[in-house]
Design a protein around this nucleic acid. Structure first.
Length: 888
RNA sequence: AGGCGCGUAGCUCAGUUGGUUAGAGCGCCUGCUUGACAUGCAGGAGGUCGGCGGUUCAAGUCCGCCCGUGCCUACCA
């Protein structure tokens, strides 16, 4: 047996086992297997750097499931990979360039792409190494990257197919534009923030004299692009104005006054300036009324030539300047404070500008319809269930999806333009010429990253080819991901999976919470409260880190990474380690095979009890994991391992291990059996420490064979199922009594400050045959646990003044403590117990005297209350008797 | 403006279909070099379950309102 340190050294142990698992192919899925399949895809992390704590959660939870299912005998595919993350990665690399004083334009597209690839290599290396440290049991042989050749082919196939179905179109519409990234964005990539701004009230003179109309705007600079003023058709105030024109200040353009139901007469002045090229509502109004679209802000966020004297100015500078100029001309009727939601670029934070732009779009409604239906018919279910509604609501009100990005990093759009005839050719492979015979050039745009991520569950399995993996593992069994990407990712996978892979991408979706810091604040680099998972793993080990995440992962509750919990679970791992050391140190020499356990009925109470409990815990674990109650599962294990197995069973088994013959054989057999089960139950949560110990334990040859048959691993050992033959309800009852007696003695010792070295004795008075029998059988155990010289039973114990008496259920425990007992203090103690009992009894009495309770409550509940009232009455009598006999 | 959460011990969180005396970890107090573990052992203190009202024999749990707090969705100039 190797020398075992007192403290578990995760840094030495963990890497060894991960390398071993990989080398024996423990995580490899096998489409040829006759075991049932269970499949998941890993939400591919962005190659923008390294994994953060949220990723750690979203790997730990599925890893627990993957390891659990694998141990249950499933052929598990957990497919890993990374996402090229178009805009995010491009931004990261651009930042690096900026630090060198360069822009991507200085490099040119090709050199820039090469530079990004270099970064991707590095980031990918970091991420995969983090995953190994975390213990993620993914099938590395199937690792994918969204820009892989086959995944890119899938992207082209899907694009062409949607185009041919009329579900992708190109057109000039108002899109959300980031002037810093210089690209269009989808609605989802625009983050709205409440901002306090100003509402400027502007006077537009009525053409031909007769006063002015006042309109209000938060974006004064857009007035230069106004092409109308609108009022509500029923608005009496402006009835005469409709059809006339007003004069746009600064530029002098005449604008028609139109009537449109969109206008809210109650808001502002009831008259609204219309800027079709810079506002989504105005755009639509423009369409309805055939208004001109005048773009006054360009792609760089500066005013265009259409802005006249303001051309070339930054949009925000122009806003100030224009407001001042209008004010000087007496055309600013007033400025009021106004809080509104301003869109910002999700990736760089720049204020989004709605711009008129030619882009590619996905006509989303027909796809969404199918995706909604699938969830309505439970082909895919969400857990926790309330996310179903979030999904449906978003899906129902969905807008077309702008998928083209003016970036250099991503899947190039498979469309070729002909300058000669203007034709656009959309095909998977580059055409040599246009149909008209002239040369073509490929569209310079790339696709939204989520377009390729949306194909992830099937593109990674080889689609569009009909592979064995697709046939076996698609649809996947489960997806675990955080709620912040339900729309971005889950929804898109649903739509595209149904459309192209012929079925929903996953049968179940478990939505996790977000991880916050110890005080519930969102982690962010600017706040400086981001926690690097590697740092934590370095401190407490992957096992403790994972266990903490699992224990804190209560559904619907964001996770606060509390130091106390982290430390507590590190200590738990150490507890397991030391319990294991104990087991290993107490095994007979040369024991290589785990011996069989005799029939439970033939064993001592403690063995029967722990076998029963171990079986029950397996059952509870099973139920918790099936409901994704990782927290409950972790709690169950923690309590069982520490407060039942270690605190009681191990303590009780110690003397038996020093004995001979059958006593020792039973002790060894049961201890090993239970310890082995504990390791296997813990393994999905703490893979490393459990493997380390399991490998050192005597084994059964058939368990945990590696695929090549040469070695063993707990990763492939069977997950403990409940054992009916171990059921021992009576042992549970007896053990509870034993524990109560022991605790009562310990409490007395503590209350009276009896030194641990001082041996004392105890006598039980009353209690009847069952108690007497238990005491006889377990006298040694009780003595040992309570630090007693002797424990005896008697019908009647002579009263002695220096004896402390405690009520345990309905019998009395007498503990003679010569020289320490103070009668007054003891009497006070009994009085406290008595008072409490009287309160309880009164409450029970009151309930039972309530006729409504007796008549309406469940008879079992009434019976129980009666029983309790009777017990309380008996106990009260006895306590009163004790008090009387103390006579203090 | 809608939607979804959350509010339980000093801190971070559990609490199953309503049913005795509301649990855990950390922290705190007392005592312990008990040969697996001081990252330990034993004992203990600490909660009017955010507030008000309702349903019920019975409410931390169900319903309504309010307060506080977080998130998501949304084209109000």
């Amino acid at each position: 047996m190797p020398e075992l340190t007192k403290v578990f050294e995760h840094a030495k142990v963990d890497p060894k086992w991960y390398a071993y698992w990989e080398s024996v192919g423990a995580f490899r899925a096998d489409p040829a297997s006759d075991r049932p399949p269970f499949s998941m895809v890993l939400p591919p992390p962005n190659v923008t750097g390294w994994l953060h704590i949220g990723h750690a959660l979203n790997q730990t939870l599925p890893d627990i499931v993957a390891r659990w299912k694998r141990m249950q005998g499933y052929d598990v595919l957990w497919l890993p990979g990374t996402d090229h993350a178009g805009i995010a990665t491009q931004n990261v690399v651009e930042k690096h360039l900026a630090a060198e004083g360069k822009t991507r334009h200085d490099l040119g597209r090709e050199a820039f792409e090469a530079r990004v690839w270099k970064w991707v290599d590095q980031s990918h290396g970091t991420i995969t190494s983090q995953m190994r440290k975390l213990g993620s049991s993914v099938d590395w042989s199937r690792e994918r990257f969204t820009l892989d050749e086959n995944l890119s082919r899938a992207v082209r196939r899907v694009f062409v197919s949607l185009y041919e179905d009329g579900l992708i179109y190109r057109g000039t519409y108002l899109v959300s534009w980031c002037p810093r990234c210089r690209t269009a964005l989808s609605d989802l990539e625009v983050v709205h923030q409440e901002t306090s701004g100003h509402l400027h009230h502007l006077r537009y003179p009525i053409a031909g004299g007769g006063g002015s109309v006042t309109v209000a705007t938060t974006r004064v600079e857009t007035m230069l692009g106004d092409t109308a003023v609108a009022v509500h058709p029923d608005d009496e105030r402006y009835r005469d104005l409709v059809g006339r024109t007003v004069v746009l200040p600064v530029l002098g353009r005449e604008l028609p006054v139109i009537a449109d139901e969109f206008v809210d007469p109650a808001f502002g002045t009831g008259a609204v300036k219309v800027t079709p090229a810079h506002d989504p509502n105005d755009f639509e109004m423009g369409q309805r009324h055939g208004l001109a679209q005048v773009s006054v802000i360009g792609e760089d966020g500066r005013m265009t030539a259409e802005a006249g004297p303001y051309a070339g100015q930054d949009r925000l500078e122009a806003r100030e300047a224009l407001a001042a100029a209008l004010d000087a001309d007496g055309l600013l009727a007033g400025v009021t404070d106004h809080v509104h939601a301003v869109g910002h670029c999700q990736r760089c934070g720049t204020v989004i500008e709605p711009l008129l732009s030619t882009q590619w779009f996905v006509r989303i409604a027909p796809l969404a319809e199918q995706a909604i239906e699938a969830v309505r018919h439970d082909r895919t279910t969400f857990a926790p269930g309330n996310w179903t509604r979030t999904y449906e609501e978003w899906m129902t009100g969905i807008h077309d999806w702008c998928i083209s990005r003016q970036l250099w990093w991503g899947h190039r759009i498979p469309a070729w333009h002909c300058d000669a005839c203007g034709r656009v050719t959309v095909t998977e492979e580059a055409p040599s010429t246009c149909a008209c015979g002239e040369p073509v050039r490929q569209d310079t745009d790339v696709l939204d990253t989520w377009f390729s991520s949306g194909l992830w569950p099937f593109s990674t399995m080889g689609w569009p080819a009909a592979t064995a993996d697709l046939a076996r593992y698609y649809p996947t069994s489960l997806l675990i991901t955080a709620h912040d990407i339900i729309f971005f990712w889950v929804a898109r996978m649903m739509m595209l999976g149904i459309k192209f892979a012929g079925d929903v991408p996953f049968k179940q979706v478990y939505i996790t919470s977000l991880v916050r810091d110890a005080h519930g604040r969102k982690m962010s680099k600017s706040k400086g409260n981001v926690v690097d998972p590697l740092e934590l793993i370095g401190e407490i080990g992957a096992d403790a880190f994972r266990f903490t995440l699992a224990a804190l992962a209560s559904p619907g509750m964001d996770i606060s990474l509390s130091e106390g919990r982290l430390r507590g679970y590190r200590q738990f791992v150490n507890k397991i380690w030391n319990a294991s050391r104990f087991v290993l140190m107490n095994l007979p020499e040369g024991l290589e095979t785990r011996p069989a356990v005799r029939a439970s009925g033939e064993l001592d109470l403690i063995h029967r009890w722990i076998l029963h409990r171990a079986s029950e815990v397996g059952r509870q674990l099973q139920m918790s994991l099936e409901e994704f109650r990782f927290d409950v599962a972790a709690d169950t294990l923690y309590h069982f391992c520490w407060h039942e197995y270690a605190d009681w069973y191990i303590e009780l088994v110690k003397p038996r291990l020093q004995a001979d013959g059958a006593v020792r054989d039973d002790a060894v057999a049961v201890l090993l059996e239970v310890h082995d089960r504990i390791l296997r139950m813990l393994h999905p949560f703490m893979p490393f420490v459990t493997e380390e110990i399991w490998q050192a334990l005597p084994a059964r040859a058939a368990e945990g064979r590696t695929p090549d048959g040469a070695g063993r691993t707990i990763t492939l050992a069977p997950f403990p199922a409940p054992v009916d033959a171990w059921r021992a309800d009576r042992a549970v009852v007896d053990m509870a009594l034993l524990q109560e007696i022991v605790t009562a003695v310990r409490t007395v010792r503590s209350e009276w400050g009896v030194a641990p070295s001082r041996r004392i004795s105890a006598v039980v008075e009353g209690g009847g045959p069952p108690v007497r029998e238990l005491l006889e059988r377990c006298a040694d155990d009780i003595r040992r646990m309570a630090g007693l010289d002797s424990i005896e039973c008697a019908e009647e114990v002579p009263r002695a003044p220096d004896t402390v008496r405690r009520l345990v259920r309905d019998f009395q425990l007498h503990v003679p403590l010569a020289g320490v007992v103070d009668r007054a203090r003891e009497a006070a103690r009994i009085e406290r117990d008595l008072a409490k009992l009287v309160r309880q009894r009164a409450a029970l009495q009151a309930r039972l005297e309530n006729r409504a309770f007796v008549e309406k409550a469940d008879p079992a509940v009434v019976r129980e209350a009666r029983q309790q009232a009777a017990d309380a009455a008996r106990q009260q009598t006895k306590l009163e008797q004790i008090l009387l006999e103390i006579g203090a």
